[in-house]
């Protein structure tokens, strides 16, 4: 049987013509920012994992080197999250420096730093800055491996960047909501006459709202699907080229199955959000009528 015609000729509205484009673009942007958020948080997670492992601490040469070394080892041994502490022997240090200084090193009588390896428990993140401060207090001049500190900062940065890109996604969705509120209000204004007739012949608010919602569902659905497909393709491109370029330098730029799943849910969530917004907007405007 033929579907009954719509009570409201919404498809002719100039404002609603932009809904697929706007929603499409916004879903595209939201998809990218969510994916970037995922990349950054997995990168951060990888870096954090490489942090837990071994820390190297240097006690510089000097008159108090032996005393300081003892204090550092004591402090490290009592630090939670550190399983083992080992002083690297002078011979090992000499071996490590050999490529630069040659095998005459032991005869040179250079002031050598004492190196201490601390094994961090798996899955345990050590606050290196705090540790560093405490070590400095008992043994001034002590240095915690630069690499670890740098990685630690990078991890923090990744968390911040991931948070920022997730906030960007939320803002993008909010702007989709605002666009739809505007379009719906315009539609209600354009068709205020028909809306009033429907209201007066006994249409419930939900009936009128549904007319707008069905209309928006299609437009936003098409837009969201396109935006999502484009966004997904862009991410695949980044994955492929990123893997080729970074060559192991950067942590894996790939998304897990769950993350892909969430990316696919994004357009659905966006459409639901938009349709719910339309419903609320229509009902709020109708609420002003008796």
């Amino acid at each position: 049987m033929m579907r009954p015609p719509r009570d409201l000729p919404l498809s002719n509205d100039p404002a609603s013509r932009y809904i697929p484009w706007t929603v499409g673009l916004l879903v595209f942007l939201a998809t990218l920012s969510l994916a970037i958020g995922f990349f950054l948080s997995s990168a951060g997670e990888n870096w954090r994992r490489s942090l837990s492992g071994t820390l190297t601490i240097q006690v510089p040469a000097g008159p108090d080197q032996q005393a300081f070394t003892g204090s550092v080892i004591d402090l490290l041994s009592t630090t939670p999250g550190i399983d083992a502490v080992r002083r690297i022997t002078d011979d090992e240090v000499a071996t490590m420096l050999e490529p630069w200084l040659g095998d005459e090193i032991s005869t040179l009588d250079l002031p050598m730093p004492v190196l201490i390896d601390a094994t961090v428990r798996r899955g345990h993140a050590i606050d290196i800055e705090a540790l560093s401060t405490r070590l400095m207090a008992v043994a001034p001049g002590t240095v915690v491996d630069e690499h670890a500190v740098w990685l630690r900062r990078l991890t923090d940065l990744a968390v911040i960047a991931a948070t920022v890109s997730l906030s960007v996604m939320v803002l993008v969705l909010l702007s989709a909501v605002m666009t739809v509120v505007f379009t719906t209000r315009t539609g209600l204004a354009i068709h205020s006459d028909i809306v009033e007739v429907l209201h007066l012949i006994g249409a419930k608010d939900s009936y009128i709202a549904r007319q707008f919602q069905i209309h928006t569902l299609w437009l936003a659905g098409i837009g969201a699907a396109c935006g999502s497909v484009l966004g997904g393709s862009a991410i695949l491109l980044i994955e492929v080229y990123g893997a080729r370029l970074s060559n192991g330098l950067l942590p894996d730029i790939t998304l897990s199955g769950i993350q892909w799943g969430l990316l696919c849910l994004l357009p659905v969530a966006a459409v639901l959000l938009v349709v719910a917004t339309v419903g609320i907007t229509v009902k709020r405007v109708l609420g002003r009528m008796m």
Partner: peptide, 15 residues
């Protein structure tokens, strides 16, 4: 934008 028939049908559709 509706035919005479659909105009008359409106109250029933709404109901």
């Amino acid at each position: 934008h509706l035919t005479a028939l659909d105009n008359v049908a409106l109250p029933l559709r709404i109901a």
